[in-house]
């Protein structure tokens, strides 16, 4: 019989180095910090990048990723496994990003009518970055998740809770819109 007072168990309990989805979900439900740390290691780079593109600054992206992890942690006990953990945390992150956008009242600016014109002296990367801001919300989201962060349509569909075909069609719309913006450069 050993008293575990020195090390509160959720911090001390072990998680396999490569946990299965079920093991990870169970550890999250039990509130094991190691499980959240594992999720952080796997997903934080993409999460930060996505938040950066939605919010426009690294500092805001970091704050929002932190907020998302706290929400994941608070809600983990009730995670029912209807979706995969990664789907679930991206969904939470996206909601946090929208909350942050609303808080800063940037939504109006971001949703401004597309008046982007590609300039001959900027690289395609910079032009694309600017053009992205002129897309509508769903087009930008699918484009960021698929083209920038490399998620599959099946994953995006699960995160956004839409059919896979919808994800494909939103991406197509987004690319058409971007192509138009990038070719409509002033003469």
């Amino acid at each position: 019989m050993v008293w575990e007072i020195g090390l509160p168990l959720p911090f001390a309990a072990s998680l396999p180095e490569h946990p299965t989805e079920t093991e990870l979900a169970e550890a999250c439900r039990r509130g094991q910090v190691r499980a959240f740390e594992h999720l952080y290691r796997v997903h934080s780079a993409r999460m930060k990048s996505l938040a950066f593109h939605l919010l426009g600054s690294r500092a805001d992206a970091e704050d929002t990723v932190q907020e998302a992890f706290l929400k994941v942690c608070r809600a983990a006990r009730g995670f029912e496994g209807n979706s995969s953990l990664s789907t679930w945390i991206y969904r939470i992150l996206i909601n946090c990003c929208y909350d942050a956008i609303r808080k800063k009242q940037r939504l109006a600016e971001n949703a401004a009518p597309a008046e982007f014109r590609a300039e001959s002296n900027v690289t395609l990367k910079v032009a694309l970055e600017r053009a992205l801001k002129a897309l509508n919300e769903r087009q930008r989201m699918v484009f960021l998740l698929f083209e920038v962060e490399g998620l599959r349509h099946s994953e995006i569909a699960a995160i956004l809770e839409v059919p896979e075909g919808t994800s494909r069609s939103w991406l197509f719309e987004a690319k058409c819109q971007l192509k138009r913006m990038l070719t409509e450069a002033p003469k």
Binding site: S49, R58, L128, V148
Partner: peptide
């Protein structure tokens, strides 16, 4: 557009982020 989009993935070090979380 697709190939350049990959370069838009923004990666930066945040050694203090996990400890803070």
């Amino acid at each position: 557009i697709s190939s350049v989009a990959r370069e838009l993935h923004e990666e930066w070090d945040t050694p203090a982020l996990w400890p803070s979380i």
